[in-house]
């Protein structure tokens, strides 16, 4: 168990570390503010530890709809591995004293805080209350995994019941319901399925469409050509008619080539020319000198590159082999 925990943490932390980098890239300005927030939140988390445990117990009375949904999803795909894992996560979070475990929910808390912050702009609530909400938000998450297992501390449950209910309603209102869209064919699954069938009207129909396109295309080309010719003719020029198609390269009777050469022979020629080049290469002194100079230049540039790279490496401390 302990090892799993470590491992997960490691896995997550590694990944999270990276995203943090990204974040810093994007918002240099906001960074300071965020850091401040983070500190604040972590303070809150620590100080409200006992309260948090209370809330945990309370929020086990979850909004019923949510519970149902979870059950449903479990039915659909009740992978044992998933259950196991969440069980493990549960355990991890229970051990709240660990430094690492505190930092992790913190990150979650920040995200929720931002949402809450927006709300608070509208109805300015007290700071303390906000802090409570944050902890609750992160605690709630825990409890979804818990799935109402913990039935402890019934007394405390009642105490905060009212405030919980408020919260429930808020949640309910916020979640936007999307219809299945089975009657609306402009969006969603219905559209995709219809699109699929509409795109397959049958081979004959498609053939017809292409034929139509081709005739239209030919007509357009013809028209363009005619217009061009007409324009040229207007200017008093005679149009020299271009014979379409390949030039007659062989005499019909004899089969001998007329004024043309084959692709193959041309390629041959080029190849020969290329072959003869190395012989000439370095024959004249200027050629040799040039070649030498080029080589030196190339080497110099490579050397410069290497030096630059080493500097970069040094900056990144890549030379630490361990």
């Amino acid at each position: 168990m302990k090892e799993t925990r470590k491992l997960q943490k490691r896995n997550l932390n590694g990944v999270r570390g990276e995203t943090k980098v990204e974040v810093t890239d994007v918002k240099r300005v906001g960074k300071k503010i965020q850091r401040k927030k983070k500190e604040k939140v972590s303070n809150v988390d620590l100080s409200e530890q006992p309260q948090a445990s209370q809330l945990q117990a309370i929020s086990s009375e979850k909004p019923k709809t949510k519970k149902k949904k979870i059950q449903k999803s479990k039915e659909i795909n009740s992978s044992p591995a998933d259950g196991k894992l969440s069980g493990k996560m549960k355990k991890r979070k229970e051990k709240g004293g660990d430094v690492d475990t505190i930092t992790e929910p913190n990150l979650e808390a920040i995200s929720t805080e931002k949402v809450e912050e927006k709300k608070s702009k509208m109805n300015k609530t007290k700071k303390k209350r906000k802090a409570k909400e944050i902890t609750r938000a992160s605690v709630e998450d825990d409890n979804q995994k818990r799935e109402g297992k913990s039935k402890k501390s019934n007394k405390k449950k009642k105490m905060d019941m009212t405030s919980m209910k408020e919260n429930q309603i808020e949640e309910e209102e916020d979640v936007y319901e999307i219809s299945s869209g089975d009657e609306d064919c402009t969006k969603g699954m219905k559209k995709w399925v219809t699109d699929y069938y509409e795109s397959r009207p049958g081979i004959d129909e498609l053939q017809k469409r292409i034929d139509d396109f081709m005739t239209a295309h030919d007509e357009r080309l013809e028209k363009e050509k005619q217009e061009k010719e007409a324009k040229a003719a207007e200017g008093g020029w005679t149009v020299v008619v271009h014979h379409k198609g390949r030039k007659k390269s062989t005499e019909a009777e004899s089969g001998t080539a007329v004024g043309s050469f084959s692709q193959a022979s041309l390629e041959d020629k080029i190849a020969k020319k290329k072959q003869s080049e190395p012989v000439a290469h370095g024959f004249y002194r200027f050629q040799r000198r040039e070649a030498q100079r080029n080589e030196i230049l190339a080497l110099q540039s490579k050397f410069e590159q290497d030096k630059k790279r080493i500097q970069q490496l040094r900056a990144a401390r890549r030379f630490k082999p361990f």
Partner: peptide
Amino acid sequence: RLLFPSELNQGKHVARGKASRLF
């Protein structure tokens, strides 16, 4: 082909949708 069913227990639940019966 689905490796693990995904669930999310954090963040703001923005919307919830019904499954289509067409597919």
